[in-house]
Amino acid sequence: MNPFLHSLFPNIDWVEIAQACLDTLVMLGGSLLFTVATGLPLGVSLFLTARGQLHAKPRLYGVMSLLVNVLRSVPFIILMILLIPLTKALTGVSIGIRGAIVPLVIGAAPFFARLVETALREVDRGVIEASQAMGATTWQIVRRVLLPEARAGLIASATVTAVALVGYTAMGGIVGAGGLGALAYQYGYNGYKPDYMLVTVTLLIVLVQILQMLGDHLVQRYSRR
């Protein structure tokens, strides 16, 4: 070990830090993937069934909207504990990297779905009307008009969701999910090792920065207005 680094951070096991980084990235990647995969269709459904939209179904919209609001109101830490039985049924483990993904997705998907709904509402109504006038089916409008036209907004929504997920994974660390958050809590907070706290939090900041920069870059690239 580099003696200078060792004198600066006397308590730190860098192999453990590297492993925690990897764990955080796996949790983030896995949960983001499933969040988008479930949140996007949910967001599209919310958009389509809202009053005055293509497939206005106020009742269905009301039910979905309520579900989304309920899931968004439960504090994530409570949600994680409440979901343990479901997690166990789905993944075979109650906690850990794989186990954390279930509550992460259930916590973040409704949030992402709302952002998707909002992004789709930004699509010019006239463009939707023009597509209808050309004889497009609803599915064609979703795939070929709504999603491409809202692409920049959807990427921005995914970015915000990814950053929120970084925060959630860190919280997951408290109840044993592993990752950088777990290190910060166990060694930095409970073990009172300020160098651990400093390194893990710095790494989380760097991660969030990278995500935001990447997201902004993609939004920029896909903006055609």
Binding site: D124, G126, V127, A130, A133, T137
Partner: peptide, 19 residues
């Protein structure tokens, strides 16, 4: 949809796909 295919339409604000 068949009817609409036989009827073209243009708009005040053009309504082109920006993407």
């Amino acid at each position: 949809r068949g009817l609409r295919r036989r009827i073209g339409m243009i708009f005040q604000h053009f309504n082109l796909l920006s993407s």
